[in-house]
Design a binder for these strands. Structure first.
Lengths: 259, 259
DNA sequence: TAGTTGAACTCCTCTAGACGACTAGCTACC
DNA sequence: GGTAGCTAGTCGTCTAGAGGAGTTCAACTA
């Protein structure tokens, strides 16, 4: 049986924080294992002799920290840490494309996960000012917009939107839902644009409500955002991609020369 | 005067979320500017005709999202976005060290901020199993541990801890609080270890209470974590550095060859 | 003038209770 | 045998109130 301890009314730390502290320790020390259910609100109300809202405040704190998830009608459970996927900086290596694997597929399989993609939407739009600038296009030039959601072992882990100039995508399956083996980078190279390098801008923030929904995460889970630009050997930007990843599921690895 | 709108009791979105939505929109559309004060709880209770806790729930949601910060006794304010600092992947370029600038100093100045460092602590410890493994040392070999906090324009933006093998640091100012011009990387190179490359592992998570305190951020602000290893030209790991950055203050730029 | 007090305002924490909605398991009926 | 409905247990949301504590500023006092 879990030792819930007691709260101390004389100390200046408020009861709801003390309760959160006790539960947090149990989780961090493994006495409450991932997936395990926390004591119900009723039990804790009884045990600590506090009001319902006080217990809920404590649980709210843990939810904000991403330590637990509540399930309406069932209980509150310790978050089972999703598998962490390491993304090495060679994930865009040509050999993967030559093997018919897209970057995501190659990485997920290497990490032993079952990859999946859904919610694919492909449209042809006029480039926004920002996208045009990043791609070095004139404003309002047309681009293929590809958005999709990636899954690992059936769980959503990332949503991404790519923008490719129509002039490059024309006559290729890039504008189709199914781009064929190797993904869009393989198609871009076949179209005569040999890829030379990528730049990635990494940052992190809290998710918007839409992103929370698409990634099936709570409001306490941060996201990693990647803004990637692909350049061909002539230095032309041939694709930009905005990616939002579930932060807890990823570690990004980069190799930086000292120069 | 700010248009607070009204809530719709017939729709299935709960009132506290509707209130949060209204406020969020005002913030996102700039009608509530950074630093500006939100209507007080009392005003909103009156305006929407709801109970205290309902308004507080709405505000809590915005706090969790990192959009606002509450100040006891003063009010709730739209978070003023701290200056974002872009960290280019050339931030460890040798020329910076040759100019006597550490990586942080070089970057901060380039971005037009006043850099600062405080809370410097230097100790000599037996390497933990993890650090020993990352540095390729035998367990319990001694390392110099340097931890410090970085400030930009007086605001804390990052805490970092470096581990350098004592065998490399011996006889250099690396074990001193003041390492001299160019920082520890300059000293490592002077000690005969020419730096060849770095690897960085980037991830993001919510901060621990300690980190919240050191970085002076609320519980709704995520942090970026960097685990860096520096290698010399012989392939030996000469330093590892664990960094925790305020996520909203940084964009990390990386250059990835397509290979 | 300089310092203190007090009021008014703010958010923080807690209590005690209400009803609603979701889940899961059991039961009774067809 | 299958299903519809009941029920206990869970979390979600809301109400109406309380005292506490930090902030500000004006009024008061020495």
């Amino acid at each position: 049986m879990l030792d819930l301890g007691t709260i101390d009314r004389t100390v200046d730390r408020p009861p709801y924080r003390q309760i959160a502290d006790i539960l947090r320790q149990h989780i961090e020390r493994g006495r409450l294992a991932p997936g395990e259910q926390l004591p119900s609100e009723a039990v804790m109300i009884e045990h600590y002799g506090v009001a319902r809202m006080t217990v809920r405040e404590a649980i709210k704190e843990l939810r904000t920290e991403g330590l637990v998830v509540a399930q309406h009608g069932k209980g509150v459970f310790v978050r089972s840490a999703p598998p962490v996927r390491r993304l090495a900086s060679d994930r865009f290596a040509r050999r993967h494309r030559q093997e018919g694997k897209s970057a995501f597929l190659a990485e997920a399989e290497a990490a032993g996960h079952v990859p999946g993609v859904d919610q694919i939407r492909v449209t042809n739009e006029a480039a926004s000012a920002e996208v045009a600038e990043r791609l070095g296009l004139k404003p309002r030039e047309r681009v293929i917009v590809r958005s999709r959601r990636y899954l690992a072992d059936g769980r959503p882990v990332e949503v991404a939107t790519s923008y490719i100039p129509e002039s490059i995508a024309k006559g290729t399956p890039i504008a189709e839902v199914n781009t064929g083996p190797g993904g869009i980078y393989a198609r871009i190279e076949e179209a005569g644009h040999e890829l030379a390098r990528f730049t990635e801008e990494v940052s992190a923030r809290m998710p918007s409500p839409d992103e929370r929904k698409a990634l099936e995460i709570g409001s306490g889970s941060p996201v990693l955002t990647l803004v990637r630009t692909a350049f061909d050997t002539t230095g032309r930007a041939v694709e930009v991609c905005d990616t939002v990843k579930v932060a807890t599921s990823f570690v990004l690895e980069y190799d930086v020369p000292a120069r």
